[in-house]
């Protein structure tokens, strides 16, 4: 007997989880908006490096998408290359973000100085933590792709990965636009 499943439960789980992550960032950004309207708010400049990291994450989203396509067409070597590139771009993004924070600190924009700076660190920091989670998952896929023992043809893990990766990408774009527009 068939059970109804229009969408794979793992993917559905991920969508619900993404909903709750959105709520978390919505909580933070709305706190940010409330705080900004109170006195003693200092305007900050985002480090230029964030532009490069944004480019990196956008490209990685494209490679992730292509990797998923390659996997579905069982183009094994192409998939391997693309998943590796995505993984490396993910690592590069994390490195860029941390250097960006370092540059901020050098300019005197430290976390303790003003509540606006604190928000910048917490929001961007929590995003990086979510992205690191994605990088770890990419690492698992990467190892699986090159492993000789495990042979998988199930697209669900790759699809879940791709969805999450696009999510953290969009989340970053949203946060970047938010932090630029409302300072």
């Amino acid at each position: 007997m068939e059970q109804r499943k229009k969408i794979h439960p793992y993917k559905f789980n991920l969508w619900v989880a993404m909903g709750s992550m959105v709520m978390m960032f919505a909580g933070l950004t709305s706190a940010y908006v409330v705080k900004r309207n109170q006195p003693n708010w200092q305007v900050f400049e985002l480090p230029h490096l964030f532009w490069y990291s944004t480019a990196v994450i956008l490209i990685s989203s494209v490679t992730m998408h292509l990797a998923l396509r390659a996997f579905k067409k069982t183009q094994k070597s192409k998939y391997r290359t693309l998943i590796s590139v995505t993984f490396l771009l993910g690592v590069l993004f994390v490195v860029c973000q941390f250097i960006g924070f370092y540059q901020l600190q050098q300019k005197g924009v430290t976390m303790q100085k003003n509540v606006s700076y604190s928000f910048l660190y917490v929001i961007a920091g929590l995003h990086v933590i979510h992205l690191i989670g994605g990088v770890i998952a990419l690492l698992v896929l990467f190892i699986k792709a090159f492993s000789k023992k495990v042979k998988t043809y199930d697209p669900v893990p790759v699809e879940v990965m791709a969805t999450y990766w696009h999510f953290v990408d969009f989340l970053w774009i949203y946060l970047l636009l938010f932090l630029m527009a409302i300072r």
Binding site: Q112, V115, F119, V122
Partner: peptide
């Protein structure tokens, strides 16, 4: 998740010198 945001900010205030 919203409580988690609130709790994270509180942890920062307690231990990292921020003033949310």
């Amino acid at each position: 998740p919203v409580l988690l945001s609130g709790a994270i900010l509180l942890l920062f205030d307690r231990n990292l010198g921020t003033s949310f």
